[in-house]
Design a protein around this nucleic acid. Structure first.
Length: 215
DNA sequence: GCGACGATTCGCT
DNA sequence: GCGAATCGTCGCG
């Protein structure tokens, strides 16, 4: 059985989230624990894939050009809270807001590896194969019961419904860097290698490669 | 008020 | 590989 236990995990402290280097943080969070306690169902997972979204200059970011709207407002919050939004009217997407107040940096969690609470995740997803439970941004939210109601959730407290626990850092040589997924509209920004995956981890999301045509 | 669209997923051809 | 699902958000006026 799984050797991971909730009592052995400590939250990553708030100060880490204030780091203004989002490319560092997006890689730092690889391998860390993402814990959901939604509906009193404890699920422990490991983050295996992330993407960085860095306003104001990133055309792929919802907060491009520091656009402040009701939806993006949480991205301007001080780092350490969640940004959850609905995509295509169906799927919730989970982000980690980072950096200092008024600097809208967000890290999209694209895939996690299920460790405990797997039966809860199977039940929410209505599928059996463990590899497909959370290998995509919409899938992991469904598996962990995460919705827009959890927007603004603090990650640095073990009392939160969703929080992030410390674990050993993945070395640079074990990280695959490639262009981000689903943002062809972002023009030159679409090519930036801001998608990060743990090498050889079977729980990362498709597509294996993203190819954007030049305009 | 209205229309267009999306940081995706799934099922079917 | 392709298209539908499905609805909150945003820009326009």
């Amino acid at each position: 059985m799984s050797s991971v236990q909730l009592g052995d995990i400590s939250p990553i402290e708030k100060s880490i989230y204030l780091n203004q280097d989002i490319l560092f943080l997006a890689q730092f969070f690889l391998g860390k624990f993402l814990i959901s306690q939604v509906e009193n169902k404890v699920c422990i997972t490991k983050i295996v894939e992330t993407e960085a979204y860095k306003a104001p200059h990133d055309k792929g970011s919802h907060a491009f050009d520091n656009k402040r709207t009701k939806r993006t407002e949480i991205m301007f919050h001080e780092g350490g809270v969640s940004y959850v939004y609905l995509c295509y009217g169906i799927h919730n997407m989970l982000n980690i807001v980072t950096s200092v107040q008024d600097e809208a940096h967000a890290i999209l969690i694209r895939a996690v590896e299920p460790l405990t609470g797997i039966d809860f995740m199977k039940s929410r997803r209505k599928i059996k194969p463990i590899k497909q439970l959370a290998n995509g941004p919409g899938k992991l939210c469904q598996a962990l019961g995460i919705t827009r109601e959890h927007n603004g959730n603090p990650y640095y407290s073990a009392k939160s419904l969703i929080w992030i626990g410390d674990n050993k850092t993945i070395s640079d040589t074990e990280i695959i860097k490639s262009p981000r997924v689903g943002i062809a509209y972002a023009e030159e920004c679409a090519h930036w290698p801001w998608r990060f995956r743990i090498k050889d981890n079977p729980f990362t999301s498709p597509p294996a490669q993203v190819v954007y045509k030049f305009k």
